[in-house]
Design a protein around this nucleic acid. Structure first.
Lengths: 133, 133, 133, 133
DNA sequence: GTGGTCTAGACCACC
DNA sequence: GTGGTCTAGACCACG
């Protein structure tokens, strides 16, 4: 996990995002135990409150759940095969904005879609390798 | 143009984003005159400075330029057919995050890519003249 | 004379600057008649007031003087061989700022001085050619 | 840091300029922490937003960068030994104008160049360790 | 009338 | 405590 202290994305949000990505690509398995707030804060050289905020957010989103004694654990949501249309407007707006900027900078559609595909597939590399497990 | 005053995205950034998207999908043609700061601020019921901030940001990014006499005008950047690899890391991170969330919510890859395609193509509906229709 | 309507330098100031430069490099000879306000404004496609402001400024600085009937005429100041130290602080600040930026962008001193020399000498090309006149 | 409230140069621009000059001449070392917005605003007797504007401009120009935790810090750009020809037209225009005015006031070229040299060298007084003294 | 600038004061997110 | 954001209102330079 690495942080960008110059980013305009708040640190607690960077932590949250990386954990979400980690869950999606299988680096963080369902039920896996996350480092304690204190450990992670110490590890990253940041305030405990910041980590706490990230964990709290993840909890409220259902990505992790906190066993009082064992600290936080990953809870991989059951995939319910939603349709795209049920993706949050927020996510759609995100893509719309990125796509607009990509287009204005001259990235052709095929290139853009290839990037999207690669990124999505990257999520499978690890879990795919576990298929034969 | 509509704003979400409850969003955690700053208003000036919402304005900026919508204009970028507008340029990308052709709603805002190259050279088109944007509303004056006062007009837009009044129209949206917000402060001039907020609009001014959005315009200044767009100017610094090269999306618009201000003729000293009139207000600001759209400047569609020359598309140089960049490769995706030249897209900012920032944009890639954005997609990575959205893709991760989509996956965790059970959206299969094909659905996800279709969404990306639709969104990118939406940019062309206006500017493209039904070439083979 | 060409103007940059996107510049942050006011138009009347651009006009004033170009005339000063023109006088320095001999394009505008002492006593030469400048175009009328109306003609120049029409020529440049700008408001008469803007040209008027430029002329007024030049007059107050002594670079031109207005004969009521003949319009404005160039008045090349008698060169009094001032020392550099008598250059306005404003001008010195200008150089200081340009030099700082040049340095930070990695322009070595010799390059910088060569530019200054070239620019100063450019002023002489025309008047030098007239030496044998 | 001192401001000229009567100048036609905006205050936020004066702040920006002095910081750029400060970086160039070594008064502000790479990585040095700048005063907080509040502190500087209070110190100068001006509004926070004015300082904020200056800082934001410097950030967008890459002269400083803001660590999310502390305030802003100097980021001395890596000097890549550019050629003068890569200096912005803007900078060249600046010099051209100053040179023209100097010439019209009778400053001979050698004097003018000496001034330029002195100003550029002033940048080194601090950062250079009296190499041959 | 236009944008640019500044102020004073306020609120909030972040750390 | 820090910076980021927004407001309301004002003044000025510009065209």
């Amino acid at each position: 996990m690495c942080l960008d202290f110059e980013s305009d994305v708040p640190i607690y949000m960077q932590i949250r995002n990386q954990i979400v990505i980690g869950i999606a690509n299988g680096e963080l398995a369902d039920g896996e135990k996350l480092p304690t707030i204190r450990a992670l804060a110490n590890d990253l050289g940041i305030n405990m409150m910041t980590v706490s905020k990230a964990y709290q957010l993840l909890k409220s989103e259902g990505y992790i759940h906190g066993d009082r004694r064992n600290g936080a654990m990953v809870r991989k949501p059951k995939t319910e095969l939603l349709k795209v249309s049920e993706l949050s407007d927020f996510a759609q707006e995100h893509i719309r904005l990125v796509a607009a900027q990509a287009k204005l900078r001259g990235v052709p559609m095929e290139e853009f879609l290839m990037l999207c595909r690669e990124i999505y597939e990257a999520s499978d590399e690890i879990s795919d390798n576990e298929k034969g497990d």
